[in-house]
Amino acid sequence: MKNRLLPLLLTATILSACSPKITSRYAATNKVYSEHADSLSHTLLAESPAMLTDSLGRSVPSEFIGTVNFNLRKPNYVIIHYTAQDSLGQTIKTFTLVKPQVSAHYVISKDGKVVHMLNDYLRAWHAGVSKWGSISDMNSCSIGIELDNKGNEPFSGAQMSSLITLLAKLKKDYNIPTANFIGHGDIAPGRKPDPGILFPWELLAQKGFGYYSDMLIVPAPANFDSATALRLIGYDTRNLPAAIGAFKRHFVQREESTRLTQFDLDVLFNVYKKY
């Protein structure tokens, strides 16, 4: 049994340890990556039974019997960020230092270059304290994509072209639902604004990555409950003004505020019906 399972269990290690090197300049950090992946592989290969005791301190009989039916867990969300740094190089440096304790699966430069920094099946540290719907650990179920952008500038055409190409691959590879392409600001309202008011969410929605409001908007009914609508979309409404601000950055993109105008309510009504 063990011999049959070993090739499957080693799949994660092979995937994570064999990523192509960016340049020899990062040989040292690539070595750390491989060593860390190797360490995780030992965890995957562990066959220790659960060590349990009852309320009286007596050992509960247990053993490990490996099932033959399993595979790797797959990501179900894509979270888009901007780097808020000066260059692709600066972001790569940040993600190859231990102290910042941040990372992402991909970084895309202004000229469209895509840098893959972590195997898609592994857990990056990009979402931080966040919540979407009932999920409070977005790092464990998502892929993080960082765009080289300070947050106060338009996103380049080359960068968007590469992003759309990458999103198409991820959506196909992992069967990610259309609704599950969102921004860091959506899952961390009041804490993070990225990818910001200048990000072209409408363009992404046209390509099948996330939702956006229609051109013709049906007015919201008089009894429309905006807080409930925001919550049903996925927003954490415990801080309602922050959730409103996050929604407006993504779906209205006309002003930075936490107040819903009648137009905003109409947009919210239009969007929430898609979820």
Rank of each mutant, 00 (worst) to 15 (best):
Y121S: 03
L147W: 04
A28W: 09
A179M: 07
S213M: 03
A227F: 06
G196Y: 10
L170C: 02
I176S: 01
F70R: 10
Y174P: 00
V60I: 15
G89F: 09
N223W: 01
S87N: 09
V68E: 14
S34D: 09
L230Q: 06
D111Q: 06
N119W: 03
V60Q: 04
R191C: 10
L45G: 01
L6E: 14
Y275C: 12
I65T: 13
H126C: 04
R25E: 14
I92L: 15
I187L: 04
P195L: 02
A229R: 10
Y82C: 13
G208E: 04
I145T: 06
F263M: 10
A168Y: 01
G57N: 09
V267I: 15
I176T: 03
Y106N: 01
A168W: 03
G210E: 10
R254L: 13
S16G: 15
L203W: 02
G185F: 11
Y275F: 13
D214S: 15
E255G: 05
G234V: 05
A242I: 02
R231P: 00
R25C: 05
Y77H: 09
L118C: 07
K2R: 13
S87E: 06
A12Q: 13
T165F: 04
T258P: 00
D173H: 03
G128N: 07
I176M: 02
N175I: 00
F199Q: 03
D38F: 14
R73Y: 06
I217Q: 08
I92A: 09
L240P: 02
H81M: 06
T43H: 11
